[in-house]
């Protein structure tokens, strides 16, 4: 990884973190008409995986999908405006947090249905293969979704047909309120890959160098036609399942311990340690992103809601209708 890429990962993680914390405040203040599931503490997964992707590569995301959109190249202001249901959002405010799409950059949906993105990503992989391209598809999903039938069917089909798909399990320890220890009888979800004759690996999802390296391997395998990979990224969901979830099903000590494994602090210290950046570089970068997100929030806040005339825009699958 060269210097620019290392700093790029830090920048992506900072963008995601600050956008999420800003959205948390906006939620409390009634600016977000839907629920909100935030990605704080899991940034190293979206950042590390998507840094390996080209614009034409495609992803499916989840209800906790703001970070994936940013990492795949969506401008924070278009993401935040969409979450606030404003006409300047990526789906002109009609999708909201759990229906964010932008096919022009390969964001094929922050899909609210648990496990819902996996069959879609499998189909995207099949399309890439049939079209004779070396495009790949990535599906992000959680530990809860790995117990869903769609997970098993998708892995089986993708491995059988050697589809260029990377299944990225964000094991954040909780499916809503249920600990993974109470839902899943194995320690590493990645071992399930063995049952489908495909590659599987578990990495520390709070270390962006690990998520980056695992995804680099998987993307290379997919591009050369050697089939899918299951990557399990172990992390921790710092916030409640949704904003307003007081998460009484776990101890404050457990959350505090997880906070101390902060992925941004980790990567910042790596880059300070190897001389990639100085303390001042970090302060400057942090300030730059702070301003970017503050401006994005203001843009979202000041934008207008869609009008009745907008109702049929983006419907019917005609790409010419996509809002730019």
């Amino acid at each position: 990884m060269n210097r620019e890429m290392k700093i790029g990962l830090l920048e992506t993680m900072l963008k995601i973190r600050k956008a999420e914390l800003q959205l948390a405040v906006m939620f409390k203040n009634g600016k977000i008409p839907s629920g909100a599931h935030l990605y704080e503490g899991e940034e190293a997964i979206a950042a590390g995986v998507c840094a390996n992707l080209r614009t034409d590569d495609q992803i499916t995301s989840t209800h906790r999908g703001h970070g994936h959109c940013i990492a795949k190249g969506m401008e924070p202001r278009r993401m935040m405006a969409e979450v606030c249901a404003k006409s300047t959002g990526c789906c002109s405010g009609k999708g909201g947090t759990m229906h964010m799409f932008d096919p022009s950059i390969g964001v094929m949906g922050t899909i609210g249905i648990v496990g819902g993105g996996m069959p879609i990503a499998t189909g995207l992989g099949l399309a890439a293969k049939l079209q004779g391209t070396d495009r790949v598809a990535v599906s992000f999903f959680g530990d809860g979704a790995s117990n869903n039938g769609a997970f098993h069917e998708s892995l089986n089909m993708a491995s059988l047909w050697k589809l260029p798909v990377i299944y990225v399990c964000e094991n954040n320890q909780f499916a809503t309120s249920v600990s993974v220890k109470r839902s899943t009888p194995i320690e590493d979800i990645s071992v399930r890959a063995i049952g489908y004759g495909m590659s599987g690996v578990t990495v520390d999802g709070n270390k962006v160098d690990e998520t980056y390296a695992a995804a680099a391997d998987a993307v290379a395998r997919a591009r050369r036609g050697d089939g899918p990979t299951l990557i399990e990224c172990k992390t921790y969901r710092i916030r409640g399942h949704f904003e307003g979830d007081d998460a009484i099903y776990r101890s404050k000590e457990e959350v505090q311990a997880a906070r101390e494994r902060d992925p941004i602090e980790y990567w910042k210290n790596v880059l300070l340690g190897d001389g990639t950046i100085s303390e001042q570089d970090f302060i400057d970068l942090n300030e730059k992103i702070e301003q970017l997100i503050a401006q994005a929030a203001q843009f979202a806040d000041e934008s207008s809601y869609p009008t009745p005339e907008d109702a049929l825009k983006l419907c019917g699958g005609n790409p010419s209708l996509l809002v730019k």
Binding site: K28, G30, F242, D245
Partner: peptide
């Protein structure tokens, strides 16, 4: 500081 809307159904 406002009475927060801490949940989708909270009024």
């Amino acid at each position: 500081v406002v009475m927060p809307r801490s949940g989708q159904t909270m009024e």
